[in-house]
Write a protein that binds this DNA or RNA. Structure first.
Lengths: 129, 129
DNA sequence: AATGCAAATACAAGTGATTTGCATTATAGG
DNA sequence: CCTATAATGCAAATCACTTGTATTTGCATT
């Protein structure tokens, strides 16, 4: 962060730690609650402002699983997608990417300059079936 | 609609016509505005209630292109996805589906009972490049 | 053509997630 | 330590969408 002239504050440290130590994808209110548990004074607006800032700086990824709240995870080295349980919201990481082997074809057919994509699979996890 | 005991009202007729004559995917406020242009008295709540009802009855599809508003299109016979221009929001239909040939593999690996999926590609259309 | 009633509407108010304005506080370079 | 200014907390606003309710309307039946 410092390299970009971004100040390291107590609130930012906590948000980063919470994301680091969570295995799932947290929504803003979950992050807010976890931060409060750590007895740090923080406001929702600070959580949102920082998550947006971190996304702009490529530190976190914003996810949308279609339940009306955005979720956040630390940006990972390897590109991946998710399969999401529509009942308990548990997720499972998918290493495969539908754009592999499809990108060139799409570019030709659509003549778009492709810059991103979204792929999510929904279903019922083993526990919820 | 009648076969399902659903009444045909002036408002519903207009919403269906707007969807039918539009080549793009309209948001609720675009539908509301277009209906108003046709000088029909209609409220936002009616637009939303009807779009939800139509989705539940398999008449329209709800789409989410990640810009914070849901979009609607008349349900089409053949399953498809979209490539969306991040600048002008124009869309192009993709006939290919990433789940073809992937579904069985995913089911085995994740042990999820797959019920749905989302796939969208983003980029700049020829006009916006 | 008139009746009756459930279904659908308009309007207003309510949600829930996220954003913004602004006075105050705190980080990091000098 | 000082100081500029970035970041915060707080309150209020916004945005997309939903809900409660009194009133109206479609339509099957007289």
């Amino acid at each position: 962060m410092k390299s970009k002239g971004i100040r390291m504050t107590a609130q930012r440290k906590v948000i980063m730690e919470i994301l680091k130590h969570s295995d799932s994808h947290l929504s803003a209110d979950e992050i807010y609650l976890k931060a409060r548990e750590r007895k740090i004074n923080i406001d929702f607006s600070t959580v949102y402002r920082n998550l947006n800032m971190m996304e702009e700086n490529g530190l976190v990824s914003k996810l949308d699983f279609g339940d009306g709240k955005r979720r956040y995870e630390l940006k990972e080295k390897h590109h991946h997608h998710h399969i999401i349980c529509v009942n308990c919201r548990k997720t499972y990481k998918l290493k495969c990417c539908p754009l592999d082997g499809l990108e060139e074809e799409l570019r030709k057919k659509s003549r778009f300059k492709i810059s991103g994509h979204k792929f999510e699979v929904y279903g019922h996890c083993p526990d919820c079936q």
